[in-house]
Design a protein around this nucleic acid. Structure first.
Length: 262
DNA sequence: ATGGTAGACTTTCTA
């Protein structure tokens, strides 16, 4: 079978339930992973999404911050949630499809403004989150697993609008990229988006603060789709829905897609 | 060197 998966930091699932519905209706991914739902699970508009065919869901939520959810047209069962940096935040949930493929939905900490763990506790927590992911997925190498989400790091020079100007900006500092790559390599994860689209600038996020996001195009690729090494060759048709950044009352992130023949 | 916008829920935090 072929299934299509999308990941999107929605920045409030309740405020943007109409945009979620639009992606469900127009793009029809089989599985849609959301981050930053900013809602307790019981206040997520589950009925609306079920009415569009997304009858299966798993979620972790908290009031006002964080929150992750997976909506699926395909049957799936929850297979747990981790608190990688032991912050008590809703930043991970996982589910397994009937074909045995497990999907991890991750929202990594943003890390604050100052890229120094002595001066900024949040930056240390971000690095620790990736260290914990490295330890977790390095202990038992994932098989038939997919990891998606807002990882809040743009690892490559062509994942940001200016490598040089962002070297000291949280999301693109060398120490973050080291932690990100160590976590990826420990799990044997393949960056599906970049395996599919190896060259050229790719962005999935544009700041709300920049005027004229489209013309300035000062974006970063913060949202990722990884596949375990055994199934990476089954991935194809990666794309980023840039148009969504121009919708009315948009999220600052846009959906990232990949399809898998499994 | 600084401020810019957005969301939740507060009179401020987080991104």
């Amino acid at each position: 079978m072929t299934f299509t998966l999308a990941t999107w930091n929605i920045n409030s699932v309740r405020l943007r339930e109409g945009l979620v519905a639009r992606v469900m209706e127009e793009e029809t991914p089989d599985v849609l992973c959301l981050q930053e739902c900013k809602s307790p699970v019981e206040k997520i508009p589950l009925e609306i999404f079920a009415g569009l065919g997304y009858r299966h869901w798993v979620a972790r939520g908290q009031k006002g911050y964080n929150g992750v959810a997976i909506f699926s047209k395909l049957p799936m069962e929850e297979v747990g949630a981790h608190d990688f940096a032991r912050l008590g935040h809703a930043r991970h949930v996982a589910a397994r499809l009937e074909n045995g493929v497990t999907i991890h939905n991750v929202y990594a900490p943003a890390g604050g403004d100052v890229p120094d763990r002595e001066a900024n506790v949040k930056f240390g927590q971000k690095l620790d989150f990736f260290t914990h992911m490295r330890e977790h997925f390095g202990a038992e190498r994932p098989r038939r697993e997919i990891l998606v989400g807002d990882l809040n790091i743009a690892p490559r020079e062509d994942d940001v609008w200016s490598h040089k100007q962002l070297l000291k900006v949280v999301s693109h500092t060398p120490i973050e990229v080291e932690h990100f790559e160590a976590a990826r390599e420990a799990g044997g994860w393949v960056d599906v988006t970049r395996a599919d689209i190896p060259r050229g600038n790719l962005y999935s996020w544009w700041s709300y603060r920049a005027p004229d996001w489209n013309a300035a195009d000062k974006g970063r690729r913060l949202d990722h789709i990884w596949a375990s090494g055994d199934i990476a060759a089954a991935a194809h048709s990666s794309r980023i829905l840039r148009d969504a950044r121009g919708w009315e009352k948009p999220s600052d992130h846009v959906p990232v897609f990949a399809s898998f023949d499994l």
